[in-house]
Amino acid sequence: MTGPGALPRTYRPRPSIWWWVRKRSYLLFVLRELSSVFVAWFVALTLALVWSVERGAEQYERLLDVLSNPFAVALNVVALAFLLLHTITWFNLTPKAMPIRLFGARVPPVAIVAAQWAAFAAVSAFVIWLVVG
């Protein structure tokens, strides 16, 4: 078999492992996927807070002390940026993944995105109110 059809099957160049740094949209895609690591970090931090608060005022102060060192602060600044990237990309994707029809007409994507940001604002305000008291 030496026909032209046989050739492509034998040669498959492997793309570089850094394929995603060459283009802005690829980079954004990989950063978005990496946001999942910080979603896991958010869970860990939440559990640490609940655990420490339950142990008493002293343990809670100790956690705040650990979290206020520069490395922890830097980590959490990066984490917050990634979590906001997750929120932005997730909200923008929703109208594409799940088009909503209302009274026979398609709800404009802008309205779906806006509704999600309204929910985000309401939940954020509620959580802050709950914590500050």
Binding site: F38, V39, F42, L45, T46, A48, L49, L64, D65, L67, S68, A72, V73, L75, N76, V77, A79, L80, L83, L84, H86, T87, W90, F91, Q116, A119, F120, V123, S124, V127, I128, V131, V132, G133
Partner: peptide
Amino acid sequence: AAVFAPVVLFLAGLALPLGWISAD
């Protein structure tokens, strides 16, 4: 995560440890 994570991380990771807000 899109709705809850940013505000929780802001509070637990930055605002409370750095004393921007204080919670009893």
